[in-house]
Every structure is written in structure tokens, then in C-alpha cells.
Design a protein around this nucleic acid. Structure first.
Lengths: 204, 204
DNA sequence: GTCTATAAGTTGATAGAC
DNA sequence: GTCTATCAACTTATAGAC
């Protein structure tokens, strides 16, 4: 694998990237159930065997897709976390929820694949155990953000951070799932959700 | 299909039920990707062709599994809804969240399959359109429950019901997903979640 | 209604030329 | 690194006996 040595040595012909892109596209349209190496190769306009050269096997490819996207979650959440003191608490929460929602909409097909493929789920659980990506780890950036707002006195002093973060992340994810399932419009806009949640979070 | 005429005419040999049970088991363990008629037949100790006799094709079988479980959601939520006036608001919310959580844990593999299989997702979206099961419809029983508590004056008069229901359903679903992905213990117990949410819901 | 037998097509994966 | 060619195993689905 050239993976990681971008811009060094012989330039990638783009086959690896084309394979990853085609995989994501199929995942989004048809789902894991119909993700075949044959179809990936056809879409990427690439030889089927190139998939095995770059990713060893089908599961390796799926893992690569997961590892390519899940870590970006921390970027998304951290960016909002940095602006903790900035605007109003309400505005920050709206931006946090919108950022989470946008992120989850992008990766919902991948998350669905992890949930629906036993092997992939198993490997994902392993990684979670050693602390790398694990499921509840998704809460940490939001917990950090709330802790900062609490330090600034804008969030209730007695707020239980983990449940609060769970509720926020859960709401964003749920909306993304609804969207993925074809819900028209999506239930309630972000402003209404934040206004509803605010009495539980803000300092009275 | 004898389906529906339980206890009338010749008794079912149980093949249909065995197929459904085996399908659910495989869905829970291995996921849609590995759900083959061959494996279903093996587990159910049944001829592969019986699957096609009862369910026409693979997708028909998947639809049958979905239709068998999703409607139970309304039973679950409605049962809690009936006890609206009963105990304290907090106790009712704990019971509602626990009921939703238990339900979602059972059907998470099926929901994952719907999300991860394009064909199944498409048919599910169709049904949603004609108002039968649709995604956001999941919110209605919770909206009804909150409306009743609001009528009784225990929930804020100005509570925006849809977002509130969304947050509750989302939290239960998120916890079920964490559990399915192998999260140890699950993040925060129901009591803490409800206590965190309560200031947003209860009459001040 | 349930079975056995079978068909045609697709699957993930490998070998070897360039 | 990427390709073409090839494989055995498995896939969904059908036909027809009981």
C-alpha cells in the first residue's frame, strides 16, 4: 500500500481513491447488502483485483472506509467546541446540532453498514475497546464543550454532562436517520429543538 | 399463505414461523449482508424452497420481518401513554424511556437492515408515504403522551411537542444503537437521563 | 405445504502477464 | 500497480414429486 505517503515516491494513479469513492457511493445508494467487489470495480472503472491489492479483502475495504470518515467527527465537534465563549449559548447549540446533523447525514450509510454487517461491527467493537473510536467516545467532544460552557457559567452548575451530551448527539443522529429513510423535510428545525432543550441546559 | 388464519383450517406446521425466527437471528448476529436463503433454511431446519413458497422472494421475507415488528412500537408507546395521569411525571418518563429502549434493542438489527439495504429502504419509504409506518410516525405516540401530560398541567404549557418527542425517541434509539455496537453498560442510566431532561419538560 | 434436485448467475478471491 | 483470466463456492429462484 502507498497509503499515507501522499506526494512522496511514485504518484498514485488514483485507483485507491476511486475504489473508496465508488464504495461510499454504493453504500449510500444500495447499502452493504449489495456492495460487491464486481460493482465497485465497474463504477471505479478499475480491475476487480486492484481492490484486493489495496485492501486485502472486502472487509479491509469496508474498514478503510470507516477509518476514513469516523475520525472526522472529532474535527467537527472540536471546531464548535473552540467557539464556546463566543456567541450566545443558544447560537452555539444551534451550530453544534447543525454540524453534528450534517456530519451524520454524510456518514449514515457507513454507520448503517457497521450496524448491519456482523464482521465489520465486530472489528469496530475491538477498536472501541482499545479506545480508538468506540461508540460512546462520540460523546466526549460534546461533554467537553458543555464543560467549557459550564465553566463560563452559561450552563447549569448541576448539569449532568454525559446524559446531556447523549441527548444532543442522539437528536442529531436521529434526524440524520430520518433523513436517510426519506422523511420529508425532517421533523422540526434545529432552532425549535434547541429552544425545547434549552431550559434543561442553560443556567436558570 | 395461511398467514393470519391462525387456528383455522389446517394447523401451521411452524415452517413459516421458523423461517421468520431464523431470519431475525441471522439479522441480529451477522446482518443483512450475510442473510442468505441457504443459511436461513439451514437454521430453521427447513427446505430452502419453503422460503419462496411463503414469502415469494428474499425481499418479501425481509418485509415480513419488518412488518412483524415495527407495528409493535405503537403498542409499546400506547401502553405508557395510558398511564399518563398515574405516577409522577418523572416515573412515567423513566418508564417510557425504558420501554422505548427495550423495544429498540429488540429491533435494532431490523432497523439496521432497513437502513443498510437499498431495496428494503425503498419499500419502507413507500409505506411511510402512504402513512402506514413511516419514520417520523414513530414520534406520534410520544407526542400524544406529552399532550396528555400537558393537558394535566404537569408539562410546560409552552412545550413544543414534536421536538420534545424527537429528543425522547432519539435518546432511546441512540442508547439501543450503542448497546448493539457493544458499548459496555451503556452511557448513563435512565434516571440520570430523565433528571437531565426534566427541566425542559416539567411545569416550572 | 413441504420436500429434493437443479439451474443460471454472481460472489470473493488468486495467478500470472505486463 | 494494474490488468486479464480463471476458480470454486455460493447465491436466489424454479420444477416437480409426495
Amino acid at each position: 500500500m502507498t497509503g499515507g505517503g501522499r506526494g512522496r515516491g511514485r504518484p498514485d494513479t488514483g485507483v485507491r481513491e476511486a475504489i473508496l469513492a465508488a464504495t461510499e457511493a454504493i453504500l449510500a445508494e444500495a447499502g452493504v447488502a449489495r456492495l460487491s467487489t464486481r460493482e465497485i470495480a465497474r463504477r471505479a472503472a478499475v480491475a476487480e483485483s486492484s481492490i484486493f491489492y489495496h485492501f486485502t479483502d472486502r472487509l479491509g475495504l469496508l474498514q478503510a472506509v470507516v477509518r476514513l470518515h469516523l475520525p472526522r467527527y472529532h474535527e467537527v465537534a472540536a471546531e464548535v467546541g473552540r467557539s464556546a465563549g463566543g456567541g450566545s449559548l443558544r447560537d452555539n447549540l444551534v451550530r453544534l446540532l447543525d454540524a453534528l446533523d450534517a456530519y451524520y447525514r454524510r456518514i449514515t450509510p457507513i454507520l448503517a453498514a457497521v450496524q448491519a454487517d456482523g464482521d465489520l461491527r465486530a472489528r469496530f467493537a475491538e477498536r472501541g475497546a482499545d479506545g480508538a473510536v468506540g461508540p460512546q467516545r462520540a460523546l466526549l467532544p460534546v461533554v467537553d464543550y458543555l464543560a467549557e460552557e459550564r465553566r463560563l457559567g452559561r450552563v447549569r452548575a448541576d448539569l449532568d454532562l454525559e446524559p446531556a451530551a447523549l441527548v444532543i448527539v442522539a437528536t442529531a443522529y436521529q434526524r440524520a436517520v430520518f433523513h436517510h429513510l426519506g422523511a420529508p423535510g425532517g421533523p422540526a428545525d434545529t432552532g425549535r429543538v434547541v429552544d425545547t432543550l434549552l431550559p434543561a441546559l442553560a443556567t436558570p
